[in-house]
Design a protein around this nucleic acid. Sequence first.
DNA 1: AATGAATGAGGGTTCATTCAT
DNA 2: CATGAATGAACCCTCATTCAT
Lengths: 217, 217, 217, 217
Amino acid sequence: MSARRVPTSIVSKPTPSKKRQILPRAVRREQLILATMRCIARLGLSSVTLSQVTKEAGLSQGIANLHFAGKEDLLVETLRFVTGEYNRGQVQILEDPAFGLASERLAALVAFQFSRSVTEETKMAVWFAFYGEAKSRPTYKTICAQADARAARLVRQLFADVAQELGRPIDPVMVAEGYIALIDGLWLSLLLAPKKMTRAKAKRVAWTHLNGVFLSL
Amino acid sequence: MSARRVPTSIVSKPTPSKKRQILPRAVRREQLILATMRCIARLGLSSVTLSQVTKEAGLSQGIANLHFAGKEDLLVETLRFVTGEYNRGQVQILEDPAFGLASERLAALVAFQFSRSVTEETKMAVWFAFYGEAKSRPTYKTICAQADARAARLVRQLFADVAQELGRPIDPVMVAEGYIALIDGLWLSLLLAPKKMTRAKAKRVAWTHLNGVFLSL
Amino acid sequence: MSARRVPTSIVSKPTPSKKRQILPRAVRREQLILATMRCIARLGLSSVTLSQVTKEAGLSQGIANLHFAGKEDLLVETLRFVTGEYNRGQVQILEDPAFGLASERLAALVAFQFSRSVTEETKMAVWFAFYGEAKSRPTYKTICAQADARAARLVRQLFADVAQELGRPIDPVMVAEGYIALIDGLWLSLLLAPKKMTRAKAKRVAWTHLNGVFLSL
Amino acid sequence: MSARRVPTSIVSKPTPSKKRQILPRAVRREQLILATMRCIARLGLSSVTLSQVTKEAGLSQGIANLHFAGKEDLLVETLRFVTGEYNRGQVQILEDPAFGLASERLAALVAFQFSRSVTEETKMAVWFAFYGEAKSRPTYKTICAQADARAARLVRQLFADVAQELGRPIDPVMVAEGYIALIDGLWLSLLLAPKKMTRAKAKRVAWTHLNGVFLSL
DNA sequence: AATGAATGAGGGTTCATTCAT
DNA sequence: CATGAATGAACCCTCATTCAT
């Protein structure tokens, strides 16, 4: 049958080319953001240096300050990149006209949240790296909060739809909050104990929770 | 009837005394660890400096290196302090002979996990600060993993007991993992969006989840 | 009749230029090494700081760590610089085809060893600064020992040639060791008591010794 | 035959006694000076710390500042101790009424200068450690210069006596300076290349030199 | 007098940022 | 635009000194 495909990712390191190249601003910025993500995952947010990031990107020292206002700005943009991508993915599912039923949408959401792309180690690491600093960094906190709020709104709406569809009266706010907390916790397990928590298992746990919530969905 | 007590915490800053004071090693270490916790909460793990920590503790620059092998050691001991305290609290509940029923124990656990002491902002901040770096720091990762493993074992046992007590056949491993993930996620909400998530609400969410799991506990 | 020339030296401090200048790595390294030599002479090996060295070189704090692996590396390279220079000078004399007679070579060696360039105060200070630490620093010791061994070999050969030329049977090993010790001792006098020991006087002492050794050379 | 005696030295570390002891000032000072010498030999002048010295002496941190004005004072007194001891030894020989002939005195001097006690590694290391710093430290320089001057005076007188005794007209100043330089150089060899230069060999080199000087003494 | 915990100035080093090329 | 050498502020850490015990 089909050959085992190597999972490719936009976050994996590209092959370097030694020539001095002039590229569009947006491309350079993304190069740097992706390199930043890999560095955060490898070194941790507190050990990331511009030197490491630019080396990872295969570019010169000074380039980060050329395309970003400074290190902090690069980090913020990295966070925005990750949250933006996630939120766009969520929106796509919840607005996809292909789904007729809310419960189908929910299934798609769960699948998405534990898809390889979303739970990629690098991304998880970046998420939690910023969560860990968010408490003390208003900028991070705001971005995280906004992303969370957007996600919560979508999930709330979805749960309301599902409840209506099933004829089960639930409190969408409470249920959404519980569900989101569960997902966050499962992601944390995936990040910190990948030996014990797999994507498949996490998905099962999520469904168990949902079953409990909707009493046999 | 009782007067509204100001919530005191071991983590809050003590009044300074300008005199050069000589104190037992253990006391100094705890002073420094608590100051470190406050600094992590205020500045973030990546911005904590020994200078800040010792100033926060009202002590001199050099003292941190006098009582700890270095900054990294101080941070590690801080992490151990937090995880140790939590684990001890958990064990206490699960071994307390005062509880006759497993379900009473579970209630106590939930109460403990959302008690003021455990969910104190500073502590939550410290937890997630280290979680955020754990991916890239083997030492942190190990300590977190050990704490998580201990917690998981206790919760698993408790859930098995509760299930037996209620005559509900559940998979304690899956259920424990779900519950723990939920708690982690709720703590994260408490930390990042204290405006939207209160301790009371979190507790309710946790109970909703448990109800779902045990089908009307 | 010729005008009294100001003795110029590569070790004397150059005029500073305030502009940020970019220079080849080798040039910067030599700048720093020379500044280090001046600092050792002025402050002593135990009081040399990178701060002093870079100020002496008219450069910024951080530059030392940019061109050397660290302070210790800078010091080691400084030692190598001095020993290398001396050894090269010696080799040059002993291999110079201009000298027909071994005794001429010997005369040139003595002249070299007490030349202004070799006995420059700064260099003598550096030599003995490192000798003083060599006992306890394997790296210094090795470099000094290698330089000494090279010098001894050359002197031994030269003395053997001179002895043959004069038809005087001597023990080249013993004589070389004595001569080298004498030179070291005279350099020490030049360094510590320049008021009492001049280059001219030292040369005379050396010749007296050699006369004694070769019985009227 | 007699058993091979372990060469004992005042500089070797004494057995520690854990009790807090109160001792006469002079004893404490000497304890600390001897410990300082061992530390200089082991670590080098630039790495000696009071912490190391007091540990080596088996005493408490603060004691050095109790018996000396400060670290610098301790070092200076250590230098004085070594130079004083050497000078006293020299004077003793040159004033000893037991010697009838100046040449006997000279023989005794050579024997003394290469005696085990004087050429003890620790002492040599201390000598050259201070020589190495003397250039830049007026205090060290003065002490070394005074010791050298005293030694030179004695040697000069001795050489004059020997010359008269032998009926050889020599320049005592030049000869003394050459001899002293030779001795210094030989000590340096003993310190840095003990594998290649032994006390016996050094003595022979010295005698070869003296023979040359006095033309078959 | 003796101890050793506490202090704080100053060291080496890192690294975000600048800027000459 | 891109580079990477140069800068200098700020970090961690050491250690001479002080001082409560």
